[in-house]
Structures are given as C-alpha cells and as structure tokens.
C-alpha cells in the first residue's frame, strides 16, 4: 500500500501512468462508473476546504463508491483532543481510503504512519497539496499535449504560493522546461527553491517584474493571487497591483495557444472578460481535478 503525502511521492513513470489513466477517464467516464462499488472514501477535513473536499467526494461518487467524513475540526474527535494517530486507527476500520486536510504541516504523514488504509494528503497547512499539483499537470498534459519543451510563466505571489512551489518541483523533472517568474520584489520565490531546485538542477529561469514584457514567450501562464496584506505598504500595492492582473489587453500579446491556469478561487487577478477566451482553462482545470483524483483513487486501491 502506498500513501501520497508529497507531489514527488510518485516517480515520473508513475505520474505518466496516473495521467494516462486520468485521460482515459476523461474520454470514457462511463467505463469507470462502478469501479469502486462497495468502496468507501473517508474525507477527514480538520479545516474547511469545500472545493477540495467536494472534488474528492465527486471523484469517489463518479467511481460508484461512497463517502463519509467530517469537514471541520470542531465536528470531529480532534475537538475532544484525540490525536491524528488515534483518529486514523479508528477510521482505518471504517473506510478503504482516506483524504486528509489539516492546518498543521506533516499531519497526513503522521496519519500514514498509523494507518492501515492508503492516505492522501489533501493539503497540510502551507506545506503540500499533491492533488492540486497532479491537477495542474493533467491540465497541461491534456490541453498542451506535453509536459516537456514548455516555457511556464508564474505570475503573482511566488513567495507564499505553495501551488507554485510544488508545480515547479514537479515540472523540473521533465525535459527542456523553462520558467519565467513574474512577481514584485517582495514576493519572489523563496531562496531554497532558487538554490536547491532551480540552480542545483541547472534549470533555465528568469525573474522579472512585469507580465506585459514576457507574456508573448509563454506556453503556460499560471496566475496566482496577490494579496494586499503581503505588501509592506499601501502605495506599493496600488502601484503594482495592475501589473499582476490579467486582462484582455494583455491576452492580445500572448501566443495563440498559450494556456492560462489558476488554482482558484480567483479574486481579481484575472479580469472576468478573460473567461470567454478559449485559452483560459482554469474552470476546465477544476474539472480535471476530479478526474485526476478518480485516477489516483483507482491506482491507490489497485483497481486500475
């Protein structure tokens, strides 16, 4: 039995298999509609994340399985002070697989050490969120047709954006991937990522401040939210915020086949007018999140 705690828990080959299965599910969802009959998924959400929880639950229901669980710490035994280890030992006898969301980093790893069923990390604080990364990879693979030979732009808050760090870590495993990192100075990627991943891996990357200047080079544009609280002062925020808002005018400068991704929820970093542009695939991305979770559940339960 295998657990998925970090996006890098799957080898490149296992990732390829997962994405191929997900693409087959996209093509013929009916074929899998009773693959998990009689199986139960427990969603153990120690903090609310409706989007992620519903995506997991939809995935299991699409496979003909059933679901149980809790959606916040105060409705769970954690409120009574039960440890993650004890909770998972009990849940292991109720379900066949579980997805755990927890505000503390490393909680799903603790669970996996005591669990007799496969554990999927559904987000542990600002640390890992592997199924988001798998969703991003499926979106790129499926809509771009490849994960190698691409120039990926990340725009916005690159310092605190966990999804960005995870996707960079996952993409450097493919050939000829280069990055353009677009952010204000205050929100550049953390040092360890620059040194231990990009520099150490001899990866081509550039750090720039302005989206306009580079958008025409990109095959993928991954947008993130720039939060006002992250800025040192109001003036900087006002001065910079439009630089990191994607609108139709900026889209005119982009390649005809560039894809725009966003982990959602979006606030104002992508103007609503961009939604009707066929290159805007962030809603499709959310849909693919369900498919990739279906594929993951099938793989982890050894049903495909």
């Amino acid at each position: 039995m295998k657990h998925i705690i970090s996006p890098l828990d799957l080898t490149v080959n296992e990732m390829t298999e997962l994405l191929e299965l997900a693409e087959d599910i996209i093509k013929e969802p009916k074929k899998y509609s009773s693959s998990c009959q009689g199986k139960k998924l427990a969603t153990l959400f120690y903090e609310p994340s409706t989007r992620t929880r519903l995506s997991f639950e939809a995935a299991m229901l699409n496979l003909g399985g059933s679901i149980l669980g809790f959606s916040s710490a105060d409705s769970s035994s954690a409120a009574k002070g039960e440890s993650v280890a004890d909770t998972i030992r009990v849940i292991s006898s109720y379900a066949d697989i579980c997805a755990m969301r927890h505000p503390k980093e490393g909680a799903p790893l603790v669970a996996s050490q005591y669990s007799s069923i496969p554990v999927i990390n559904a987000g542990d604080g600002g640390h890992n969120h592997p199924t988001q990364t798998f969703t991003d990879l499926l979106t790129i693979k499926s809509l771009k047709g490849r994960l190698s030979n691409v120039t990926v732009g990340f725009c916005g808050d690159l310092m605190f954006g966990r999804t960005v760090h995870s996707l960079i870590n996952a993409m450097v495993r493919y050939d000829n991937v280069s990055f353009v990192l677009i952010s204000p100075n205050e929100l550049k990627i953390p040092d360890y990522l620059r040194k231990e991943v990009l520099d150490a891996g001899n990866i081509t990357y550039r750090e720039v401040k302005n989206l306009d200047e580079v958008i025409s080079e990109l095959d993928i544009l991954y947008m993130t939210r720039v939060q006002k609280e992250r800025f040192f002062n109001e003036a900087d925020y006002v001065r910079l915020k439009d630089t990191y808002i994607l609108d139709a005018k900026k889209m005119e400068l982009a390649k005809k086949d560039m894809l725009v991704l966003h982990p959602l929820p979006r606030v104002n970093e992508i103007a609503v007018e961009v939604d009707k542009d066929p290159r805007a695939v962030y809603f499709k991305q959310a849909e693919y999140g369900v498919y990739v979770r279906m594929a993951l559940i099938l793989k982890m339960l050894e049903l495909a």
């Binding site: 993650v84 503390k104 980093e105 490393g106 909680a107 603790v110």
Partner: peptide, 12 residues
Amino acid sequence: NPRCITSIEQEL
C-alpha cells in the same frame, strides 16, 4: 516550526 504537527501533538 509553530505550524508543524509536532507543535500540537506532544507525544510525537
């Protein structure tokens, strides 16, 4: 790290 699970589960 105050965000680490070891910060709230003493027995870990």
